[in-house]
Simulated scan of single mutants.
Amino acid sequence: MPISRIAIGTPAEASQPDALKAALAEFISMLIFVFAGEGAGMAFNKLTDSGSTTPAGLVAASLAHAFALFVAVSVGANISGGHVNPAVTFGAFIGGHITLLRSILYWIAQCLGSIVACLLLKFATGGLETSAFSLSSGVSVWNALVFEIVMTFGLVYTVYATAIDPRKGNIGIIAPIAIGFIVGANILAGGAFDGASMNPAVSFGPAVVSWSWDSHWVYWLGPFIGAAIAALIYEVIFIGPNTHEQLPVADY
């Protein structure tokens, strides 16, 4: 069972050069991702007056996040595994592919990267608002929670299939492309309802900078539940004890 392979790690791990380099890579990848994704939404709003709520704005957000995540995962893959998402890190932890202490380092770096990206955007745009994620009219927190669980399940399942599965072989850039595509597709599906976060750090940065916390817990609980379900299903059914191997960080 995956749960039996969960590792806490040692305090010394937090000061190891490779762990610190991996955390820095996650910070930079998240900064790249949030700056491009959030910045695209801000630019569309400026050009079209709340255009992000229109069909064209949704498509623009989907493309911006898909392209930016493809790049962010690619540039971090050889150093940290290119998680660029606390939920992805949590899914890898549940499967026994990363220790808890290293996961905490990643979570801190990812959240800081998101905050710094939003601060840079606010400064570069002359003080424009970095909008926090929020629920659309008529959408309850439970509706949004289900959206976040299902969308993050699809994301982390894709990560497992293309990047973590030890039988994946040498598929090159297929993993970053697939991960970017599933996020872009999920934004088209759920963006009009709850913003389609799938990523607690992406929600955290704008919430800190704008200091808006309405229903913020949904954007943490939903992705973590979805990630855990995807990790358990893929580990138990498709990897199993006979094919599992501890993956080096360079692989994911």
Rank of each mutant, 00 (worst) to 15 (best):
L232R: 04
A228E: 04
Q246V: 02
I229A: 05
V249C: 11
G222N: 04
I239F: 09
Y219C: 08
G240Q: 12
I237C: 08
F238N: 11
T243Y: 14
P248H: 11
Y219N: 00
T243F: 13
F238L: 15
T243A: 15
G240L: 13
Y219E: 08
L221Q: 07
A231L: 01
Q246C: 04
P241R: 14
G240A: 14
W220H: 07
A250Y: 07
V236I: 15
G226L: 02
A250M: 06
L247D: 07
A231H: 03
N242F: 09
Y219W: 07
Y219S: 05
I239E: 08
N242W: 03
Q246M: 10
F238E: 10
T243V: 09
P223V: 06
V236W: 04
P241F: 10
A227Y: 00
W220T: 05
L221P: 03
V249I: 15
A227F: 03
A228Q: 07
P248E: 12
G222H: 00
I229Q: 01
I239M: 10
A230H: 00
G226H: 01
Y234L: 09
A228K: 04
I237K: 07
P248D: 13
P241S: 15
P248Q: 08
E245Y: 08
T243R: 14
I233G: 01
A227Q: 00
E235R: 12
L221H: 10
I225L: 12
A231M: 05
I239L: 14
I229L: 15
G226V: 02
Q246I: 11
I239H: 09
L247A: 12
A228T: 15
E245F: 03
E245L: 05
F238G: 11
P248N: 09
I237L: 15
I237S: 11
I233H: 01
I225T: 10
E235C: 10
Y234N: 05
L247H: 06
P223C: 04
V249Q: 12
I225M: 04
V249W: 03
P223T: 10
F238I: 10
A231D: 01
G226Q: 02
A227E: 01
I233Y: 05
G240R: 13
F224E: 05
L247G: 03
A231G: 06
A231T: 04
P241H: 15
L247T: 10
V236E: 11
Y234D: 05
N242P: 02
A228N: 07
F238T: 07
W220E: 01
Y234K: 03
Y219H: 03
Q246W: 03
W220I: 01
Y234I: 05
F224D: 09
I229C: 02
E245R: 13
G240T: 10
F238Y: 15
P223M: 05
W220M: 07
G222S: 07
P248F: 11
I237T: 14
G222L: 02
Q246A: 11
A228P: 08
V249F: 08
L232V: 13
Y219V: 02
L247P: 09
A230E: 02
V236R: 04
H244P: 01
P241W: 13
H244T: 11
E245D: 10
Y234T: 04
L247V: 08
E235D: 15
P241I: 10
W220A: 04
L247Q: 09
